[in-house]
Amino acid sequence: MVNTAVNLNGLKLKNPVMTASGTFGYGPEFQDFIDIERLGAYIVKGTTLHPRQGNPYPRMAETPSGMLNAVGLQNVGVDKFIADIYPNIKDFNSHAIVNVSGSQVEDYVETARKINELENIPAIELNISCPNVKEGGMAFGTSCPAAAEVIKAVRKVYSKHLMVKLSPNVTSVVDIAEVAEQEGADSVSLINTLLGIAIDAKTRKPILSTITGGLSGPAVKPVALRMVWQVAQAVNIPVVGLGGIMTAEDAIEFLLAGASAVQIGTANFIDPAITMKIVDGIESYMLEHGFEDVNELIGGMITE
């Protein structure tokens, strides 16, 4: 038996595998394919104070080894989440974490306050990095003072585990991570999508209705690994790594770079059972390479 459990600053996970917000619906969408209770945690769709229709279609472009999306936080809003969705997911024996987004500080605060009341939601992931909304979103995650303001305000009303999701669209992700730590975040997750554009040369038009969108998939993995590695060295709170993880080996690489857990995102679209393969694959890797505890892998990249 190997130990796959990790402890994210008090948030105990049976294994380091989570799903990334916006790629896993609310969870039940995947029940035909996986046992949700075998996930360390799963992060549900970005939730805002008010319902959002998101951006107009088309809002996805397939790109080499990845995709651009411009969904724009389409979601039912926090009240409907609490009334209609929470009852269906609260009894899973895994951690449901709500990704909280907003266009102004007060929205984040009010949403976090409401989620704080839900007994079986042990954490929120504060999304200060969505590139697809006109107001708020990434604007909070690309400036240190703006990040500080929203994290501080949410920290005051949210008493459980506060994970802050960071944007890669910055000059120094370490600076934002340090702000998150100073303002009381319990962990940081990175990376959100990289801002990009897809153009159809035949029509000379952008493919996305919003022109720009967020790039995800294996195309971003090296960038994500680099940022996870930099941030893990700079902060003392746990780092959750994501960006293009398609296999157990990819997940191991994030652990080696310093992530204490990982999120599986875009891969869910191609193989809805991928998370189980990654959970199993991490165990196989440990057995094969003689590790008894997954924690030995965290930050275990050999540089000499």
Partner: peptide, 8 residues
């Protein structure tokens, strides 16, 4: 399967 919300 209704997770990514891009085909709306």
């Amino acid at each position: 399967i209704g997770a990514c919300l891009v085909c709306v």
